[in-house]
């Protein structure tokens, strides 16, 4: 074996059973590959990486890779990650969540982690549905679509996760798809290197639940949809608004330098130790 696969094997836990647990054609595996390649390109030591997840299909990801790994409670991954990062700022803390995990049950934690600008990377696999529990609608299920709990169609409106992250104050926000795997590699690398709260929203597909219920085809057809509806930020700049109507942006949506929590807190420590007045 060589190149990508060789390095992917370098990071997998060899005492875990493969093939992994996800359905044939699931985007989580593609996302995992991008994550590993980005970590390898930056050159992080395995010991310094902490991979944290919540609950759901994406929650099963950390178990397969040879880092410090933590599989937390549903929606709470960012809170555990906050504790890890603040207590040991030298660690590179990466949080993997699904759309239900990150913006339904964990929505409050998500906006506050972004607001604080804690130096974490949140990777959110957005497949528009609760896959593991059997296809119930999530906060990113589009209006009018079917799920096992919206069999008469969904009358709620979907969150735009990346736009939410930008508004909440994240330092870096990127959106990719699992079809655009190379772009995803690059977005993850940029996010990991960013000082502050970085978000990578990964548009993926759940053909097993969401695709089947909405007759969207299998993984191939759903990847084709991603290919045909994703427009890079650069291309979109040259397009008319009506051309963008049924499209979504991929690429870097925000990249800004903001005060980073851990650095700010270190300054608080120095002030506290110097006996500088609390009200100074």
């Amino acid at each position: 074996m060589e190149e990508f696969t060789k390095l992917i094997h370098k990071y997998l836990r060899h005492d875990k059973k493969f093939p992994h647990v996800w359905c044939p054609g699931c985007g989580i595996g593609i996302m995992l590959g991008a994550l590993i390649r980005a970590i390898d390109r930056i050159g992080y030591e395995k010991d310094e990486v902490v991979l944290v997840s919540g609950i759901g299909c994406s929650g099963r990801l950390p178990v397969y890779v040879d880092f410090n790994t933590l599989h937390t409670t549903h929606g709470r991954a960012l809170t555990f990650a906050t504790g890890i990062k603040l207590a040991k700022p030298g660690l590179k803390v990466i949080v993997v969540m699904g759309d239900g995990d990150a913006v339904a049950i964990g929505g409050n934690h998500f906006i506050h982690a972004a607001r604080r600008n804690i130096d974490l990377t949140a990777i959110i696999l957005n497949n528009s549905v609760y896959g593991m529990t059997g296809g119930q609608y999530s906060p990113t299920t589009p209006f009018g679509m079917r799920s096992t709990t919206t069999m008469y169609t969904n009358i709620e409106h979907a969150f735009k996760i990346s736009e939410l992250a930008v508004t909440a104050g994240a330092a870096f926000v990127g959106r990719g798809t699992v079809y655009h795997a190379k772009l995803l590699d690059g977005l993850m690398e940029k996010a990991f290197l960013k000082q502050g709260f970085s978000v990578v929203e990964v548009i993926a597909h759940c053909h097993t639940q969401y695709g089947k219920l909405n007759r969207l085809g299998g993984p191939v057809e759903m990847l084709q949809w991603q290919r045909d509806h994703a427009v890079t930020v650069e291309s979109a700049a040259r397009m008319k608004p009506e051309e963008m109507e049924d499209k979504f942006l991929i690429g870097v949506l925000a990249d800004r330098d903001l005060p980073v929590y851990t650095e700010q807190y270190e300054r608080i420590r120095q002030r506290a130790k110097a006996g500088q007045g609390k009200d100074a």
Binding site: E2, E3, F4, F18, P19, G29, I30, A181, L223
Partner: peptide, 15 residues
């Protein structure tokens, strides 16, 4: 190498 990049199961390698 796109097949390798997009394989969700790390099951294909292009030398």
């Amino acid at each position: 190498g796109l097949c390798e990049l997009r394989c969700p199961d790390f099951a294909i390698t292009v030398h």
